[in-house]
Amino acid sequence: MISDAIDNEQVEILLNDVLESHGYDFLEYSHASIKRRIIRLYGLDNFVSFAEFRYTVKTDKQYFKRFLEEITVNVTEMFRDPSFYKSLRNDVLPVLGTYPFIRIWVAGCSTGEEAYSLAIVLKELNLLNKSLIYATDINPSVLDKAKKGMFPLNYLKQYSENYLQSGGLKDFSAYYTANYSLAKFDESLNSKMIFSTHNLVSDHSFNEFQLILCRNVLIYFDKDLQHKVFNLFDSSIEKLGYLALGSKESLEFWPKAKEYKRVKMEKIWRKL
């Protein structure tokens, strides 16, 4: 990858075009990361000049779909950070189980691996029936994948290990059927999921939840945008509800952080 194929000014031009022509605002994303994604895509798709790249992104709706999918990071896994899922299983979900109805928002769900992991834990705690998982992402094409609940079979060994480490009680293979190179997850899991596009940068709160899970999404945002999104979450979490972040993310510098209490050592906070 040629790391200096596109300079900072061109990144700005491109992102302004994207906002103007397509309504997606990436201007408050962490600059180094988004620049790297842009240069990566430019190289992958063999553009010969910035002008050509810019024109295509601006005018070609079909190509913009690809741009959106490649510029955002859609790397995820099931039961990522097993100790986190262990804490959800032991400390958080049993508390939510005392409510008559559980509403959970998985924000920036990508292809759905975390939503399915959560549904499995809820099922094992006999809570899935009274739960509803709202899984949202900026990107409609990853949501189409998430709805199908089919994940590459070659990842399942790792997912199964994660699941067991997180305190999983069953044989992981009971949750899916192998279909050529894909594992199709049980439909009882996504029967309790609602998939919808939602842009954390520009869209508002749409419900109140007892748990919001947003992991490895905020690392791509600059500090101001992170704080805006924390405010959005704050207005979407019930009192005594929970907010769960990725392993390197933190509420620490957000002014309202003192209204939240950390749950043990995990990146989970409870609204006071």
């Binding site: 962490s30 600059h31 990361s33 790397v75 791509y220």
Partner: peptide, 20 residues
């Protein structure tokens, strides 16, 4: 950190990235 890419921003702050 293990399992994250680490990038340096223009203002010399650190960005982490969980991409491919």
């Amino acid at each position: 950190p293990a399992d994250y890419h680490m990038l340096i921003e223009e203002d010399q702050s650190i960005s982490l990235d969980y991409s491919e």
